[in-house]
Design a protein around this nucleic acid. Sequence first.
DNA 1: TTAGAAAGTCAG
DNA 2: CATCGCTGACTTTCTAA
Length: 1140
Amino acid sequence: MAAPPHSSSSQLFSDDSSLLEALAHVVTPQASKAAPQTVHAVDSAPSSPTLTDAPPSPAAEAHARKSPASYMEGEAYSGVEFGEWGQYMRNKRAKLRVQQDAIRERHCVSDALQGCVIYINGRTQPPYAELRRMIMEHGGQVLPYLDQKGPCTHIVASSLTPRKVEAFRRYRVVLPSWIVECCRVRKKVDWTLWRCPSMDVQGHAPLFEKREEHAAKAVQRTAWRAQSVENDMRSVQLAMEKAEHESDDVQQSTECELNDGAHTPAAFHQRTAIPSDAQHDARKQLSSSPPPLPPAHSPSSAYYTGAGNQHAASLMASPSWRAEHTAANSEFLNGYYASSRLHHLSTWKSNLQDLVAQATTESARPPMDALLHGMARVIMHVDFDSFFVNVSLRSHSELRTKPVAVCHARQGDSVSSTSEIASCNYIARSFGVRNGTSLGHARKLCPDIHTLPYMFDAYYDTSLRFYTLLTRVADALEVASVDEALIDVSCLLASLQSGVCSTEPALHSAYEMHLPTSPTAAHALAEALRDMICDATQCTASIGIGANVLQARLATRRAKPNGAFHLEAHALESFMAPLQVRDLWGVGWSLCDRFHSWLGTRKVGEIIARTDEAHLVRQFGPKMGKTLWDKLHARDTSTLQAARARASVGAHISWGVRLSDTPQLVAFVERVCAEVAQRASRLELVGAQLSVQVMQRAKDAPTEAPKFLGHGRCTTHHRSSKLHPTCEARALMHAAWPLVQSLRIPPQDVRGLAVSLQRLQPMLRRMEQPRLAFPVLPSADAALEGSEASASSPPSPSFHIPPASQLDLDTVAQLPPAMRACIEARIEQNVMGASAAHFAAQAPHVPSASLEAQAAPLGLDAEVLAQLPTPLRHEILHAAAPQTPHRTAKRHASSSPRTPGFGQKCKKSPARRAHSVSPAKHATLAVSPPKNSAFPALHALAIDPDVFYALPAHVQADVYAEHMAAHTHKTKLRKEKAKAPERTAAQRRRHEAEAAVQYEANIRLRGARFPDSDPVVQEAKKCVGESVGRDPRASLVSAPSTHTGMLHPYLPLATFRDAVRDWYATCGHAAPNPADVARFECVLLACVRAQPPALGTISGMLAWLAYLVENGVPAWKEAYARVDSAVKEAVVAHVRGRLA
DNA sequence: TTAGAAAGTCAG
DNA sequence: CATCGCTGACTTTCTAA
Ligand SMILES: Nc1ccn([C@H]2C[C@H](O)[C@@H](COP(=O)(O)OP(=O)(O)OP(=O)(O)O)O2)c(=O)n1
């Protein structure tokens, strides 16, 4: 329904096939473990750089006083045994007191707060560090932890959650301004005048307020409080001037909430990153290289606390305009998603992830951790420079020397445009413009800025070329976004260095060319890759190189624009210390601000000096604390993730949502549900849990948000409920509406809605059921027989099915699965060429013209098809080519409808395409059974779809859940444990031997110059086979190497045989159920259709059935004869009588 | 205490 | 004309037993 991005270029598809080609080549990552050396290299670096250039801040002083031995000899500093928690806490309190006393001695200004023992709760203004200094300077004590044991006289808090309100009921809870005031007048003032307003609320306050609401609140306080706010601000200023010396840190101070820039609650937290000048490398060779970037201009609260958008308000006054241009319009979602850059970004990422996942699981792959045993990792972060602009400038080279931005707004000079800039070039950035800046604001900063429209197709096209290249060369690959990838090149680099001839001569020679001028070999490789990327895409990319993902990302910052940078271990410490904590990937505005309020600094070096891991954990939680501490030290144990099992699928919208009444709201929720249903069904997933998220205009927010049709300040509400696993729109609505309704939000105040499915399971497509329930003969089926007979002809190969356009498809839809499968199979037999069917299946949801293109070759009426319920249409189109390979192409098509030229251009059948990938290629590298790729959900969990679908439904659910859990567990383990698993010496030796073989095999397979019989390749296969074969449940688990799949592309004959034996054993004494016979025939016809046809299975099965029925009842013999002739006929037609 | 729901954060 | 503030993963916090 949502019109996905359109491809105007048929070129795109040829690229897609070349991508697939590359996919077949890729040498796959297995979860690689961080090389121990990497960690050690970081560990051994001095962890607390001394900040000699920094004037001492209070916290830093506290830290400085920690190190001298003088006060470390007291009891407070005696060590504790592991587990003595109580003692530890006592010691800790005492230790902090010692530090406080030390500060007080030096700074005592007055005794206004004498006798006060104060606990500071949460984020405050002035920040924690500043309050703490003030309290101690005026004779008070700061209680580090509120644990009921110490005597606490006051709690300082800006706002409190209901739970905290309850917990603090017995305390004097004051605003931070109370401290400021006491310090100002140098005496203790009446605390009740500064009582924290949260304490007055009797529990019905919203659970949380978005930060901009805090900002808004701050401005709206009453007069006497406004005074306090002023004081608070002054203290902040003071703190900054006096204690903070954050020369390059100012742009994030509190005034950022008072100026223009950020646009959304999310954007408020996610303001554009500001590269620090210090790290901007001035030696850029590009002639157009801009001067160092100025700090970005800070966001304006006028944007979200100020007046609403008058223009929008006047438009909104017209009911007809509203009906036409807002979510009240039933066509709104389609148009919206077609133009939303963020929607495209998300969709592309997901598509690309699927492509890569498929590529990396389909190729032979030596275990990466084995390869890397004893080898330092080399990770590269590859990122196009100002991607959208870069792509557009290919056709606008006259603008290369001008400031350029991509956004929706047209060229003009209005400074009131609220259109967001998706991407701007580095010249525009030199004016302070950033990705995400509103165009109006950008024009104030840079009146000459040129705007260019979006070219969504071109971006994805470029991206496919990019990934085609990367999958060909990288050891491992993770999709970070449409324009950004992480690659592991450890092995590639090693083979280049050792002179092993690469399959990529271009890469090899470019590498050799850059080697003499590059500081490191990795750098030369990066430059070579950059050359190739530029050749392939006509766009410049930058590459950061590091020993882990985090370091590679950090290096990219310095590499940009149009450069490469290798962050080497010896330079880490000096590189890290001056960074802003915001520069670390995963640290956003919220964390950054929390650091600032807590420690009074945002600099990595200073944060490390002022705190430790335990405090970080206390402050940010167990996981965040730990990872933050690691990140501050440039440690990162994450591995590249080629495939990840999806855990949710949903659709969000929070723009243009302006509804006037409940019927409109109902219709809107319904449409979003339909959208989710469609997305889930394309993924062939059903969900057992549904959640909705509704954004409600904040009470005091203007009706029309400052951003045109934006959501403005909102409170967000989540609700979720369980449901019977489904992806049907109506079922989703059935679950979603009560949830939305329960929130009792006036429809006029709804500003955004998200619906998503969780607890996903693979959809049981009906075409799969003959396999599933194959031998089963439920009695219900017998009861249905009558209706089957009356509904249509008996399901025999000879029965007549009218042309599809004349079938009542709704009736067909209600037939029992077996009947439908049969009819669908018959429809499919009319298909002239598999390729048409394949492409039809690729884009089953495209309306109008393209639907017709799909329908025609199937003998279906496009109009009828268009009117079908989506799942049924999907199913019918899918039935036409159930065994077509390359589900990825299908996924791809789901976001890029075909152009008319597409079908013509790709005359080759998909199967042929797969086989023509690389004629010279070794069999083991050939594309694996097409079926594997058709089940991304299963694939991500390494479940063999064949086996999976052969299981009874209830067992399927268990198996899936089990694998899902195992997958999650494994991911967690990978993250937590980077070190190599402990092994016995013997195991290690064996492992190393295997690794050597794998390594060798890897290189040979890469070279594609070795035949199947190559002893090394065979040895490598054996290793992989062995390790898989031992698990008793291995049959449920796809081998990491797919060669077994190559040898037995389909269900093992034995499985078929057992199924048929059971079937015959159950009812061999009587006539077989016609539906089951039809199923059996369908299964065999599917074998015929398969590429290559599973001839062994077919003849084996026919022989087996012949054997079984040899002495059986005539009905069975008849059944056999029917199936036999039908199948043989099909085979003859299909493969020109080779079997006969 | 703990499981599950809700809320918050982050990236591009 | 405006304008297209998405999406999924992950963590923490809250709540109901
Ligand atoms: N707030 C944002 C951020 C990014 N993008 C889109 C446009 C960008 O071109 C693309 C890639 O984002 P990057 O963060 O990689 O930024 P650029 O590629 O534009 O610039 P650079 O990577 O050189 O900093 O994503 C967007 O639409 N909105």
